[in-house]
Amino acid sequence: MQPLAEIVFGGLFQGSLYAMMGVGLALVWTTIGVFNFAHGALMMLGAYLAWTLTAAGLPLALALPAAILLMGGAGWLLQAGVVRPLIGRPNLVLAVVITTLAAGSLVENGVLQAFGPRSKQLPPLVEGSMTIGPIGVSLHQLAIILATPVVLLALWLFLTRTRLGLALRAVAQNEDSAQLVGLNVAALYGLAFALSASLAGLAGIFIGGYRFMSPAMGGDPLLKALIVVVFGGISSISGPIFAAYLIGFLEAFSNYAFGLYWTPAILFAVLISTLMVRPEGLFAPRMGKLA
């Protein structure tokens, strides 16, 4: 009973973090058709912004929304600086891989310069722990498990129920037609990046509350987000979300059954065999769509 409960809890927790990271990556892919390799650095920046604000004396309840808003601005700037100028050029996808990698590295080393390499930690969302059945869980992790579906649901409602969300989904499908109904494509691209960066920042704050933060902390989550997005299918938002939880559970199970060191290899084995059968991803619809 106890191992099962540990696996379920661990899977839900990891899945939540992966979903939060993956959905931001997928949002940018589905609207602009590029991969943002600075996504991990954005995640780290969100954690450091929140840390700076809490270190200045702000309670986390204020620092968190403030950091997320700032991250929206950072995403917008990143888009305007290294993505927008390349739109419409040949080799857009590859060029953006390079420019976002460069921007990510710049942010990472900038943070290293500014804050130094010493590990930092954010206060948890909720202090304390509790017992659920046979296992003890931290309330921080429980809060993440509960908050993530709410955030994802809000994103889904925004995309499917609001006019602006409709516009974001449209620009993903046909840029020319989007312009011809009067959508401001540049602003929508900026919005997609801003939303994506905010989600990354939130993931960073989640992670920073239970693990030590360092300027390089975004590397592994970026890798996991890439796995999740490719595994779930890069052309939708819902695909990566399902995939995130699936991978979370798989990872938790593999950690328990085969041990920590085997887990990455097992994850990649599952990813590769899935892609051999379904190259478009596990949950991909036939065509690109956002929600």
Binding site: L166, A170, Q173, N174, S177, L180, V181, G182, G288, K289
Partner: peptide, 26 residues
Amino acid sequence: LIHVPQGNRLFPDLSIAECLALGAWT
């Protein structure tokens, strides 16, 4: 000045109602 382009693919995954709503964006 509204231009309806040739062979318009429009927005494949949007419904007709959603396309029309976007048409009235301005």
